[in-house]
């Protein structure tokens, strides 16, 4: 009887409340940096998701563009049309605020997809390497070692270049975004593979894995249902830090002209376009996209740093 009472009493303590009471949430609430950083990330992600609703103009609909609006400084009415733009317009009269929102969308999409793909490749290969060992492990880890001797950005550039050569010219612009995702993912999987392999090597010899093997579960269920959940927390940390790196890598590639095309500009492409107007005094075309990129990269970075400390039991 008292048992049921107890459960009823405990019932209002939902999963959310439990999460709120955990060490993890406690360290989050007591770190102003983490709170502010995650707030910035949430705002930027929401802005990117709802870009078509928030943006006052659709910058890629030629019908709404008016060349007379070109080079309008932020906040002041245009000399010809008397229209005002929050962050000004670029040379073609596109609203900079709207292009940033759409650019943010592409930057975040490419960054997140690339990290997700890298995570999947890395986790699968890392688990396989740790679980099977032998020549499979040697092969996978050797490839990882070789790739690690080259900077990731160089690997991404090279993959982008090769992919560009393979795709027929008429599809190059449309495919660019996906090629970019694959290029960044393939340059980044090694981190995940190494960490997962390291953690899985320890887990592999624990009793629960032996027990699972003893009752006759197959290799793959053991790897993905039993070992994987136990090696996920370092993966989470690396994923967050990787996200910041992937966003910067994407921006860098696009800035160099080997990434998102001008028809689908990401933040990097916008900065590349804006750089051309640095000397003629139209600073806002460059300044606002650069600030957005910086805020995004910095916030994700800080969040990753905090996560690393919060999930590290040694620092508790």
């Amino acid at each position: 009887m008292s048992d049921t009472m107890e459960t009823q009493k405990a019932a209002p303590k939902t999963r959310m409340a439990k999460l709120w009471d955990s060490d993890f949430a406690w360290s989050f609430r007591h770190s102003p940096v983490a709170v502010i950083a995650s707030l910035i990330v949430v705002i930027l992600v929401l802005a990117a998701i709802f870009a078509p609703l928030i943006a006052p103009y659709n910058p890629f609909d030629p019908a709404t563009l008016n060349l007379m609006n070109g080079f309008t400084p932020p906040g002041t009415p245009n000399a010809f049309t008397q229209e005002t733009f929050l962050l000004g317009t670029d040379d073609q009269g596109r609203d900079v605020f709207s292009t940033i929102l759409y650019g943010l969308r592409i930057s975040l999409f490419v960054g997140a997809s690339a990290v997700l793909l890298a995570l999947i490749i890395g986790v699968v290969l890392g688990l396989i390497a740790a679980y099977f060992g032998g020549w499979v492990e040697t092969l996978i880890m050797r490839i990882a070692d070789v790739q690690l001797t080259f900077p990731a950005i160089l690997v991404a550039m090279l993959i982008f270049g090769i992919a560009k050569g393979i795709t027929p010219p008429e599809y190059r612009n449309e495919m660019a975004i996906y090629v970019l995702i694959i290029a960044i993912a393939l340059s980044d999987w090694v981190q995940f593979a190494r960490v997962v392999r390291g953690a899985a090597l320890v887990e592999k010899n624990k009793e629960y894995v032996q027990a699972a093997r003893l009752i006759g579960r197959g290799s793959f269920p053991i790897m993905f249902r039993h070992i994987l959940p136990n090696v996920l927390s370092p993966v989470l940390v690396i994923a967050t830090i990787s996200l910041a790196l992937a966003i910067i890598a994407e921006a860098t590639l696009s800035f160099l002209g080997v990434g998102a095309p001008p028809t689908q500009p990401s933040l990097g492409t916008l900065i590349r376009i804006g750089q051309g107007f640095l000397f003629s005094g139209e600073w806002w075309i460059l300044f606002f996209p650069a600030c957005t990129l910086l805020a995004l990269a910095l916030a994700v970075n800080l969040l990753g740093d905090w996560l690393r400390d919060a999930l590290n039991p040694k620092l508790r």
């Binding site: 910041a244 910067i248 921006a251 860098t252 800035f255 160099l256 900065i271 750089q275 640095l278 000397f279 600073w283 460059l286 650069a290 990129l293 910086l294 990269a297 910095l298 970075n301």
Partner: peptide
């Protein structure tokens, strides 16, 4: 460390050249 290289370059150009 957090600033992308190309933004540092643009910043320097803005300050010292422009």
């Amino acid at each position: 460390v957090s600033l992308p290289t190309f933004l540092i370059g643009i910043l320097l150009i803005y300050i010292f050249s422009v």
